[in-house]
Each structure stands twice: as structure tokens, then as C-alpha cells.
Amino acid sequence: MSRMKFYCDDYRCVDCNGCVVACKEAHEIPVGVNRRRVITINEGIEGKQKSLSVACMHCSDAPCQKVCPTDCFYIRKDGIVLHDKEKCIGCGYCLYACPFGAPQFGHEGIFGVKGVMDKCTFCAGGPDETLSETEFEHYGQNRIAEGKIPMCASMCATKALIAGDAAEVDKIYEYRTAKRGENTSLKPYGWEAYNNGK
């Protein structure tokens, strides 16, 4: 079974925030909620500036799912982690458990009372009827059901952000790694890659 994965190539990411805006426009997400964000470190420091676009990583052992008191998360067969907004009570535990800061909560309401959680759906909608209006309202577009790749990756100007079947993503990664030569981890992503990378 294929597994859907994101991969952001920090050699390619130019911090243009195109993915962020593409995502928000596609899913009509309110201001203040960012399913995807671009992080830049060492801005302006020669040779050290790096950018990376991050969103939900769709973990196979998703901590958000483990911690959720209402058990509103579910993992699709293709590895996409989705959640049920009808169940979510907005407690925010997933935010604490997530290593990537993917869960987002809006700021509306008095005393900053949080709404329900919103996060990257890999453009795969949610538990509502596929391609229905309710689904769009709750989770945004369901591009996976339409046979398309997520909006962020399809709009990425430099094709730093790749999304799709892990095996395919891995192939692209291997291709680029081989072309670039040394100094790149052989494993895309994961903590291991991080720790051995440099």
C-alpha cells in the first residue's frame, strides 16, 4: 500500500511562502491559522541561511492521535492523518503532542476561546461525505479524491516541496541527492536523517 508523504528540499526552498498562500487560498482558511508555514533560520548570515516549509507530516504513529481525548483522529490507509471536526472539543492536547506544530486553533471568540482544531489534510478532506459542501466548509478541498496532489506542492515555485506516494517522493529525493553528490543524508526526513545529516 502506498503511503502519502511530504518532503521539503531545503536545498531548493527559497522562502517565498507560495505554499502557505496556496494552501490558504485553496481551503479558504481564516487569517491566523496556518496549516503550512515556512521557517527560515540564520536570516542574512552568510552560508547559513536555510528555509524549510513545514506542515503536518502525517506520521504513521501520530502522537496527536495518541493524545486526543475524544479520539477524533484517524489514519487513512494511505497514511494521511485526518480528524473529525464534529468530535473535536478544541482542548489543544494535540498541539502539545505534535512534534511539528501542525495543529492550529483560530483566535475567534471572547477570551481567546479556541475553536476546533484545524490542520493540514494533505488536501484529502475529512470524514464528511467526499467532495460535499460540508467537507469543503470543514476541511477545504479534497484534491486527493480528485486525483490531484496537494495545493502547496503543486504551487511550489522551485519544486522544493514534493508531495505524493512515499516511494515516488523517495525516488525524486534520491535523484536529487545523487545529482548533488555528497553531504546529503541518504534517508529523507525522519529524526535519523536529521541527526546523521550533518
Binding site: D10, I39, L52, V54, Y194, K198
Partner: peptide
């Protein structure tokens, strides 16, 4: 650098 990126992201 990776640790720095993780801290920042």
C-alpha cells in the same frame, strides 16, 4: 544546522 532548524521550526 539541523538541530537549529528543528528548534526554529
Amino acid at each position: 544546522e539541523l538541530q537549529q532548524m528543528m528548534n526554529a521550526a
